[in-house]
């Protein structure tokens, strides 16, 4: 169990984490989402006692990190940046960590095997690829067989097989009753692994909800219609009391009405349909929507941001209040 209470961290003028209050329960994977610079890594560093909070508190089973007497057996963390001495072999790197916590040495080859790095155990991480470095980080996190696992963007740099492996690993760890806290930018990735969801933007809490509820709330379903006679179709729909929205590409979008009913209606009035397709807005869109107001670092190449598409910020806030 990880508990945050009004956690705040400033770096000079910059507020990286702003009064965060939430908790992470054992037994489920909790996804921690936010755009770049939202404060995810900072929150994790605060948890590990690497940075000191400006205000508020962050506790692990009621204690601060530096009060843990067996830290690696308690929390295994994969940090954002490669936090490894490039000149020390993978084996020795894990060995020195094991020794610092009195973990038996036989655990080192075990975790190396688990992440598939046995072949390069004696090699120096300097020459590791991004994915290999990530695997070493995961091995390090699992070294103490911890009850809390915290991964900062674990799939970063992994190949598809590796991504699949991390996904299963996290679910397995959670099923064993551990607390799994994992950060990511990818809503779609999280929807496959996480059962619970915490979203932050600019250091502030935007959502703290179950994944199922999030999907339910946010997957807008609609039917797209395309016809050579859009005006006539609109009239027909209007008469039937069905609101339709004309989209810029010439198609119509209808919400909350089954595709079958729309098809029948068109057939009744002998309107030719070129397309009749049920659509689902992606979770990624929902996520962008939620954090739209809080994205600090965005590229300026796309003409149309998520804000422009569905008018903005109030949406996320209203949703947050509604939970």
């Amino acid at each position: 169990m990880i508990e945050l209470e009004g956690l705040t961290k400033r770096y000079g003028e910059k507020v990286a984490v702003d009064h965060l209050t939430f908790s992470v329960r054992p037994g489920v994977v909790t996804g921690f989402l936010g755009p770049n610079g939202a404060g995810k890594s900072t929150t994790m560093r605060l948890l590990l006692g690497l940075d000191r909070p400006t205000a508020g508190d962050i506790r692990i089973d009621g204690r601060h990190y530096d009060q843990l007497r067996d830290p690696l057996n308690y929390i295994g963390a994969l940090l954002e940046a490669k936090s490894v001495h490039g000149g020390r072999s993978a084996y020795n790197h894990l060995l020195c960590l094991a020794q610092s916590n009195g973990i038996p040495e036989r655990r080192v080859p075990e975790v190396l095997d688990m992440v598939g790095l046995t072949a390069v155990a004696k090699k120096r991480p300097k020459g590791f690829s991004l994915g290999m470095g990530q695997r070493l980080g995961i091995a390090q996190a699992l070294l103490g067989d911890p009850r809390i696992v915290m991964f900062d963007e674990p799939v970063n740099g992994l190949d598809p097989e590796g991504i699949h492996w991390v996904r299963t690993l996290m679910q397995q760890l959670a099923a064993e009753g551990r607390t799994v806290f994992v950060s990511s930018h990818l809503m779609s990735e999280m929807s496959l692994t996480a059962e619970h969801l915490v979203v932050i933007g600019q250091g502030k809490l935007m959502a703290d909800t179950s994944m199922a509820a999030f999907i339910h709330e946010n997957s807008r379903t609609y039917v797209r219609l395309r016809t050579p006679e859009p005006e006539r179709l609109r009239n027909v729909l209007h008469t039937a009391g069905i609101p339709a929205v004309a989209v810029s590409d010439g198609s119509l979008e209808v919400e909350n009405v089954a595709a079958a009913r729309l098809g029948e209606l068109a057939a009744e009035h002998r309107i030719v349909l070129h397309e009749l397709s049920p659509q689902q807005a992606s979770l990624e869109e929902a996520f962008m929507q939620l954090t739209a107001g809080s994205v600090e670092y965005h590229a300026h190449t796309t003409a149309e941001g998520p804000e422009a598409r569905r008018g903005g910020q109030g949406w996320g806030q209203g949703w947050q209040e509604g939970r």
């Binding site: 006692g49 690497l50 530096d66 830290p71 690696l72 940046a81 936090s83 490894v84 001495h85």
Partner: peptide, 17 residues
């Protein structure tokens, strides 16, 4: 060398004292 490589974060996570 621990600061240069980021190893210090790992070290202090393993031993917060």
């Amino acid at each position: 060398s621990e600061y240069g490589t980021g190893m210090i974060r790992t070290t202090l996570t393993a031993c917060p004292q």
